[in-house]
Design a binder for these strands. Structure first.
Length: 590
RNA sequence: GGAGUCGUAGUUCAGUCGGUUAGAACGCCGGCCUGUCAAGCCGGAGGCCGCGGGUUCAAGUCCCGUCGACUCCGCCA
């Protein structure tokens, strides 16, 4: 009987249990560890399901033992044998009640000594693990992340298909877009000097599916943005992309809530309550200093601008007089040392704050604080009361422009919560953030930019404001947020060619320019476009949050480093002169 | 583009005030061992101290630059 041809795998190693005792099994896998006692010896066979202990006993099979004797770390082998109960059980192993006594074995392939230990609790530098990603991927945590990812793909497809969505593909080689993220460009060989771009998202294509009448579209698609990386951002990432016709935002919310409910139930076995909390952008920024608020803890931002406007503390008074804000976060129980506050001051400074004022209240609301001398006893009591401070509570203040106050205190809030252990690791705090401004003013370029994208519909009642006060226009846009991460975002789109043209005008795009860049869209809007809208969810972030991780590299099989390189393939890399010639490119300085 | 942290054996780290031959654990190689669980015991090999300059009688250690990894700011419609 030959392995592979006659002897097929009967089980995965990690699935063996007491119920299999007495059965003959065939296992294939890698040598995880080996414990040799001179006579009988043990080899842990590892496959994608886990480990099983193989016992090689020369008195059972000398041939099998001879094969087993050659096994070293990561050698690939197969074994046939009987499952037996162990003499001494291992409660730390899922298969710890049983072992397989080898009767026949085959060495398929030896292995070089791996550059790092292939173990679950590895502490090796990530760059080395990325260089040998195929070894890192043998580890259970990564295998589980990728298998979870596969499962989510299937749940999403089933759910959306069951709800009448149709899955389509859209081009990867497409047209460069003037707004938004930096494009990855692909030179054209056939058209010298011209370029395709990789899609930042299939935005316009999915809208055109609506124009074409397909009504409900989805795609699990790769998107590309040539911007700097973060722990939750890769240059190529995967979106669950959705678009629907004849809808209002609530329809999108319902579909997404049902989708996420199903995913968390089937993957984590938890019930998440729906509908999710809805919160305006203004409220999110005001209370949490973020458009993606982490609602797993309190520490809300509180405005004291009116109470300090006429105080003797000129930093606060002048900030308010200049149109700024003074806001505070209160840490119940306080106890932050001077050294801790210095560290937190560094945190807020990275967001542009000039400093961090602080005060500890007593039972009467009187302060112990370097700035206490600037406030009367009445002022101190009034501020303590406004902030709801009990004895010993510590307030941390930032005074600045609203944007700086929000960013600084928002980050401070997050840092404090983490350091003080205020976050329940099992909590899942979903919410929708709505009513985003349509436009933000760019000081440097002295023009309006679309906060979401230029195809986002303003609220109908705000359309006239586009002419008079663009900063006040609210968009029919929405983000779904989980634990402080933006899980996805979308909007109701413009389906009126006149409004779309108005949008391009406002963004400073001439008629010729808009026609050249988006002529096909303007054409489409003229040919019977239904009201429509949609959303895209970040698949990588979703998986990361599902497994309780904090870095999307851990849920991507072959991720890139923060400098957008692949340590394994060494991409990007130089190309030959001939390849450059074919696409009509001359390198600078050559 | 900017800030911070890190870079010493295959891996994870230590290395004092700049001073003799750069250490430990794990891994690796050899030997012993019949019930281990990352087995154990004995022995051995293994170093471009990221790279380049500088200061010094002397640099893993101090200074400057550079490369790479990570985290963050800017950026990410």
């Amino acid at each position: 009987m030959q392995f592979l041809a006659d002897l097929k795998r009967t089980h995965y190693a990690g699935d063996l249990r007491a119920e299999h005792i007495g059965q003959e099994v065939v296992l294939f896998g890698w040598t995880h560890a080996r414990r040799d006692h001179g006579g009988v010896f043990f080899v842990d066979l590892r496959d994608r399901s886990g480990l099983a202990q193989i016992t090689f006993d020369p008195t059972v099979s000398a041939d099998a033992a001879a094969v087993g004797d050659r096994l070293s770390r990561e050698f690939v082998f197969g074994v046939r044998g009987k499952v037996v109960a162990r003499e001494s059980k291992n409660p730390n192993l899922a298969t710890g009640e049983v072992e397989v006594v080898a009767e026949q074995a085959v060495l398929f392939n030896p292995a070089a000594v791996p550059p790092f230990h292939i173990r679950d609790d590895i502490d090796t530098n990530e760059d080395l693990r990325l260089k040998y990603r195929f070894l890192d991927l043998r580890r259970a945590p990564l295998q589980q992340a990728l298998m979870t990812r596969s499962k989510v793909n299937q749940i999403v497809r089933n759910y959306l298909t069951d709800n009448g969505f149709i899955e389509f593909e859209t081009p990867i080689l497409t047209k460069a877009t003037p707004e938004g993220a930096r494009d990855y460009l692909v030179p054209s060989r056939v058209h010298p000097g011209q370029f395709y771009a990789l899609p930042q998202s299939p935005q316009l294509f999915k809208q055109l599916f609506m124009v074409a009448g397909y009504d409900r579209y989805f795609q699990i698609c790769r998107c590309f943005r040539d911007e700097d990386l973060r722990a939750d951002r890769q240059p190529e990432f995967t979106q669950i992309d959705i678009e629907m016709s004849f809808i209002v935002p609530e329809d999108v919310f319902g579909i997404i809530e049902g989708l996420l409910k199903g995913v968390f139930e089937q993957v984590r076995g938890v019930q998440i309550p729906t509908p999710f909390l809805r919160m305006s952008y203004a409220e999110a920024m005001g209370r949490y200093g973020s458009d993606k608020p982490d609602l797993r803890f309190g520490l809300e931002l509180q405005d004291v601008s009116d109470l300090v406007a006429s105080s003797g503390f000129s930093v606060f008074a002048e900030t308010v007089a200049g149109g700024g804000q003074v806001k505070a976060v209160v840490l119940p129980g306080g106890g932050l040392s001077r050294g801790r506050i210095d560290k937190l001051t560094q945190v807020v400074k990275t967001y542009g704050a000039k400093g961090l004022a602080y005060a500890t209240a007593d039972a009467e609301g009187a302060w112990t604080s370097p700035i206490a001398k600037f406030f009367s006893a009445e002022d101190q009591a009034a501020l303590s009361q406004r902030l709801g401070m009990a004895a010993g509570d510590q307030a941390l203040f930032v005074a600045d422009k609203p944007g700086v106050v929000a960013a600084a205190l928002g980050a401070l809030r997050q840092t404090l919560a983490r350091e003080q252990g205020l976050i329940d690791p099992n909590a899942l705090a979903f919410c929708w953030v709505t009513e985003f401004p349509s436009f933000e003013w760019d000081e440097k370029e002295q023009r309006w930019f679309a906060m979401h994208h230029p195809f986002t519909s303003p609220r109908p009642e705000d359309v006239p404001l586009m002419d008079t006060d663009p900063g006040q226009v609210k968009a029919r846009a929405y983000d779904v947020v989980l634990n402080g991460y933006e899980l996805g975002g979308g909007s109701i789109r413009i389906h009126d060619a006149k409004v779309q043209q108005k949008m391009f005008d406002l963004l400073g795009m001439s008629a010729e320019e808009s026609r050249q860049k988006f002529g096909f869209l303007l054409d489409a809007l003229a040919f019977g476009t239904p009201p429509h809208g949609g959303i895209a969810l970040g698949m990588d972030r979703l998986i990361m949050l599902l497994i309780g991780g904090d870095n999307i590299r851990d849920v991507i099989a072959f991720p890139k480093t923060t400098s957008a390189s692949c340590m394994m393939t060494e991409a990007p890399s130089p190309v030959s002169k001939q390849q450059l010639d074919e696409v009509h490119i001359t390198l600078k300085g050559e």
